[in-house]
Amino acid sequence: MSTCFELPLTPNYVRDWDFGMAVRELIQNGLDQQSVDAKSLFSVDYDPDTQKLKFTNARSRLKVNTLLLGRSSKSNDEDTVGQFGEGYKIAALVLNRLGKTFTIYNNMMNQIWTSKFKNSRKWLDKLLAFFVEDVQSPNDSLVIEVGNVTQEEYNQLTEIWLSDPSVARIRTEYGDILTEPEYSGKFFVNGLYIECSGDFSFGYDVKPRYMVLERDRKSCDSWSARQVTCKMITSALLSGGLDFDTAKELIEVDADDINLIDYTYIEGGGKERLIENLEKSFEEQHPSESKSSSVYVPVNSEIDKERVNAYGGIPVIVPHNVASAPFPTR
């Protein structure tokens, strides 16, 4: 015997959502749960023969009250991506609309939740409903099973989720810098892909507490992205994970990764070494013919250019962070 819970969601809700958007919500929930409980390891499995896609947390549960819209067990948790409490319900609606099955094995609660659309006598319309049945469960895992998933649909997960642990990365307190060329300019938060505009040389997987997302949880503003990547680059420099020549090159090409650098926060001799590398590189590119000849000076504005000309120097327009570097000999 099962208990029916009708949700005030009709099949036409979030009509623009597709399979990838729905699955993204399920991955996000699984990763968030793993973030708050390290023992609740998250995994994804696909069986092409049965066409079943499973999202599993090793130790987790859902209470019936999470079926309420806006109700979430992770509200205000800075280690999670989601904050708005609608994810798995909307995913269930979209996947049912696409002809998939959506079943939750809520093992810690000894329950199976089956979802489908039903004609509501109360609301005189078709709504999403969950049918909760009490069963004896073998373990404490939470498994969301989506049926009728094609191989092509499953392949979409690689565009949503950074699932490969072998991807080369530099670890920092703010998250990971992804150094492989194929990830250049790509942003992830807790392993989940987000859209960020900007000219970034590396890829980044940022911890949720350090990245503020837009309401849709799928994008961020470029200012926030540049702030956190600058902190990650600086942290990698100080830890030895990133070499100073690479940081110098990022500054010279005005990459957004390090666009907001503040030299005063680079400690332990790192500031002096980075500035020395920048100065050496500038002098190699603009050598003076003799000690008595005019000196080349890096500038970043017309005002500075005119000032250098007035003093008999030769101004060279360079990116802001090269011009602002406090070269010892300047």
Rank of each mutant, 00 (worst) to 15 (best):
D254N: 15
S293M: 01
S281Y: 04
N309L: 14
L250P: 11
S235T: 00
K291P: 07
N309K: 15
Q285W: 06
T246F: 04
T246D: 06
L250W: 06
D245W: 15
G268R: 00
S239A: 12
K231C: 13
E289S: 15
S301P: 05
E302F: 12
T234G: 11
K271T: 01
S288Q: 14
P287F: 09
L250R: 05
T234P: 04
G270N: 10
S239M: 11
G241L: 00
S292G: 04
D262E: 06
V295R: 14
E284M: 04
S281P: 03
V299K: 08
E283Y: 04
L274F: 09
S290D: 12
E279T: 03
I251W: 07
L250K: 05
V308Y: 11
I261S: 03
I303E: 12
E249T: 11
V253Q: 13
E252N: 02
K248R: 15
E306F: 10
S301K: 10
V308A: 08
L238A: 09
A247V: 07
A236Q: 01
S301F: 06
E284H: 01
K291E: 14
I261M: 08
Y296E: 07
V295Y: 11
T234E: 07
P298E: 01
I266G: 00
N277T: 09
S293P: 05
S288H: 15
I314A: 11
S288T: 12
L237H: 05
K248A: 06
E284N: 11
Y296V: 00
I266K: 10
L237E: 09
E272W: 01
K280P: 02
A255G: 09
T264P: 10
S235W: 07
N309G: 10
R273H: 11
A310V: 08
G270T: 01
S292Y: 12
I251L: 13
I233Y: 02
L260R: 08
A310M: 15
L260N: 05
I275D: 00
S294Q: 12
V297F: 11
K305F: 09
S293L: 03
V295G: 01
